[in-house]
Amino acid sequence: MKIIERLLTNRMLAELDAGKVIILLGARQVGKTTLIRSVYGGEGTIYLNLDIQIEQARLQAAGDLTPEAAIGYLGGGDTIIIDEAQRLPAVGRIVKGWYDSDLPVKCVLLGSAGLNILDKTAEPLTGRNIKYYLTPLLFEEVLRHQDWFGEGIDLSRFGSQIELLRQQFLVLGGYPEVITNSDPVLVLQTVYQDYLFKDVYGLELVGSRAKLQKLLSLLAYQVGSEFSTHELANQLGISRNTIDRYLEILEDTFVIFRLQAWSRNPRKELSKKSKIYFWDNGIRNAAINNFSPFEQRSDQGALWENFMVSEMIKRDLTLDQRQRFYFWRTYSGSEVDLVIQKDESLRAIEIKSRSTRLSSKIFENSYQTRVELVHPGHYLDYVMG
């Protein structure tokens, strides 16, 4: 089966000789191991998976040796790939020792949790690493994987094929095996139930699995809406502090992300609210166990908005564009779905499920920034390079 090419590959290859420890972060099952082996694999590569206890023990034993002896003990080679690095807090200290010894060995750490959970692992490597983030597949990567796709093609010739892929992506999302497997719903349910929260449960970061799952279900119904931690706490019968902690964990394991309100006029514009989105539409739908075809769904608007917002932020992370993303709303109800800031420049985007007339004069007049309309008939320029 043809491997799905990732846009991050070219960026990593361009920085191959940067002389730093490589840290690749992303949710479980998004293809980190496949990607890293395509870039750094081959003869002379040592691969350790710290999900496996005996490999944890090997690495810990190597950590008690001199750097030169440790590399020999692990089998020699010029590249060491350490998968699921968050499983062993001492890994950062060990790799730091190797790096500081100027050994001719490249070290690559893969983690299925963000820097809050990975902090004990990554902290010793401050200033010594390059971080990359691998997200679920971008829609562009799915299109490029199609047999009919080629550089410079006229995409308008394949409108029906692209529309079918769009509708499938809105429901099933972009986990690689979901795209390539003949039973995508089963794969998605397995990812959601067995893999996604493995680190959360393994590190005993939550007190109640049932409460976490219920929280995810509530969040899935509030995609693109402002939410209240107070209301969520009341619905679940737990404290607001616990809700805040669970939200941080879900963010740090790449399940959800938050958009903060953007404001330069706190008297008239919201400045302390936030909205929830899922990194992947399929995981959102798994949280409510609804995989009905797109055309049969009552939540088409929420799925479309989650897709567009997540796609643009995934592209930003993949291509290292270093933009900041917000939403905007006034107390009187005027709203813009997405405000994108880079340095002093602004873009404003309204996401609609159909072509419609915008009522965005307040934002445009206040910030001299045109509000762009994105709808299913006009979106490919926003998700393709």
Rank of each mutant, 00 (worst) to 15 (best):
I3T: 09
T9G: 12
A14I: 06
L16I: 10
G19V: 09
I22G: 02
I23L: 13
L24K: 00
G26E: 06
A27V: 08
A27Y: 00
R28M: 10
T33N: 06
L35K: 09
V39Q: 05
G41A: 15
L48K: 05
L48T: 01
I52V: 10
I54V: 06
E55N: 00
R58H: 10
R58K: 13
L59K: 00
L59P: 00
Q60T: 15
A62E: 04
D64N: 15
L65R: 00
P67F: 02
A70G: 04
A70R: 06
G75C: 13
G76K: 09
I80L: 15
I82V: 15
Q86N: 07
R87L: 09
G97I: 04
D102A: 10
L109S: 04
G114E: 01
G114Y: 03
L115Q: 14
L118E: 00
K120H: 11
E123I: 12
L125V: 07
L125H: 13
T126E: 13
R128T: 02
N129Y: 15
K131R: 14
K131E: 12
Y132P: 01
Y132M: 06
Y133S: 09
Y133F: 13
T135N: 14
D147L: 10
F149A: 01
G152M: 08
D154C: 07
D154M: 01
I162S: 05
I162E: 01
L164N: 11
L164P: 00
L165K: 01
L165I: 04
R166S: 03
Q168C: 11
F169D: 03
V171K: 00
Y175T: 05
P176G: 08
T180P: 14
S182V: 11
V187E: 01
L188Y: 14
V191E: 07
V200N: 02
Y201M: 14
S208F: 04
K211V: 12
Q213K: 15
K214M: 11
L216G: 10
L219P: 02
L219G: 05
A220V: 05
G224M: 03
S225F: 04
E226R: 14
F227H: 12
S228N: 07
T229N: 15
H230K: 08
A233K: 05
L236C: 09
R240A: 01
L250H: 08
E251G: 03
E251N: 09
V255N: 01
L259W: 07
Q260C: 07
Q260T: 13
A261Y: 02
W262N: 13
S263L: 02
R264L: 13
N265S: 11
P266E: 03
K272T: 11
K272Y: 15
K273T: 13
W279T: 00
N281D: 10
I283V: 15
I283S: 09
R284N: 08
I288C: 08
N289A: 15
P293A: 06
P293D: 11
R297A: 09
D299W: 06
N306K: 01
S310N: 08
E311Y: 09
K314I: 03
Q321I: 12
Q321M: 14
Y326L: 05
F327T: 08
T330I: 04
G333N: 12
S334I: 07
V336K: 03
D337C: 12
D337R: 12
Q341M: 11
A348P: 04
E350M: 05
L358D: 07
S360I: 01
F363L: 03
T369N: 07
T369R: 05
R370N: 14
E372A: 11
V374G: 01
G377Y: 15
Y379P: 03
